[in-house]
């Protein structure tokens, strides 16, 4: 029916007596950026962890490319084509951009070379990938620790792209960034969508980041779907009201 790659239908999840998610539904489509917003404790992170396979939902359906998936473990979900970039980025500051991009799956020579690193090939591939993502301003041979927050975030995102996923989940990519660094990340997020990926972004930066860089805004409140907006037809106030649960959410059409 739609371009949906990943659909969640009626997902519920509780931890002990606490209901983290109740009957939540969400669709991610090819080439679209969806923002997931909500107040603290609204269930955003839990929902992302369900999608990335960290949490198994108590009930509801996880549908990927029109097949229902039994959420088993994060590695299986990642192999399937759903990559997650967590807030801590998991970069090694003492290694350069190329080394970080290929960490854990380096191209090497045969065993008798002691699995010698094929640095040149890695650098060429890294250069091509960064170029395609319009990230050529990133220095390949520079230690990641010496880079700006925006560049680090973008390297972490670019690394997830190397696995050729279909869906990318970004957990607060702009949380610790300046406005200009957040713009760099926003440009990359739009670039990913233009390449046909489905992107989900958690962000608190409604007025700038979310309104400017996403196609749709899904609002969670107290673990439930609270509202869904077209990013082009909504104001920041309307989104915030939906987040905190004001009656104004009803007025979104007006």
């Amino acid at each position: 029916m739609t371009d949906a790659i990943l659909s969640l239908r009626g997902i519920s999840k509780h931890f002990g007596g606490v209901k983290a998610l109740t009957d939540v539904s969400l669709e991610l489509e090819r080439g679209k950026v969806v923002a997931l917003v909500g107040d603290n404790g609204a269930g955003k992170s839990t929902l992302v962890k369900v999608m990335s396979g960290v949490h198994r939902p108590d009930s509801g359906k996880y549908i990927f490319e029109e097949r229902e998936i039994q959420v088993s473990d994060p590695a299986a979900i990642a192999d399937m084509g759903v990559q997650t970039v967590y807030q801590d980025l998991a970069l090694c500051n003492n290694l350069d951009a190329v080394q970080n991009l290929f960490l854990g799956r380096e191209m090497t020579g045969p065993w008798w070379t002691g699995f010698r690193l094929n640095r040149a090939e890695a650098e060429r591939k890294a250069r091509d990938v960064l170029k395609r993502l319009r990230l050529d301003s990133i220095s390949l041979r520079r230690n990641v620790g010496a880079m700006s927050g925006g560049q680090r975030q973008n390297i972490a995102i670019a690394r997830s792209i190397l696995w050729e996923p279909k869906v990318v989940l970004l957990d607060e990519p702009t949380a610790a960034l300046s406005h200009s660094a957040a713009e760099q990340v926003g440009a990359l997020v739009r670039e990913l969508a233009s390449h046909g990926l489905a992107v989900l972004v958690i962000s608190h930066d409604i007025h700038h980041f979310v309104l400017e860089n996403t196609d749709r805004i899904e609002v969670l409140r107290l673990g439930r779907n609270a509202a869904s907006f077209n990013s082009k037809e909504v104001t920041g106030e309307q989104v915030v009201n939906a987040m905190v649960g004001g009656n104004e959410a009803v007025n979104m059409a007006g």
């Binding site: 801590d88 980025l89 998991a90 970069l91 090694c92 500051n93 003492n94 290694l95 080394q99 960490l103 854990g104 799956r105 380096e106 090497t108 070379t113 002691g114 699995f115 010698r116 690193l117």
Partner: peptide
Amino acid sequence: TRFGLSLYAIGNNAEAARRA
């Protein structure tokens, strides 16, 4: 070698290395 690079990665961020 790959082993050598792993040493440096672990020394800086063992959790990142593990996740990689």
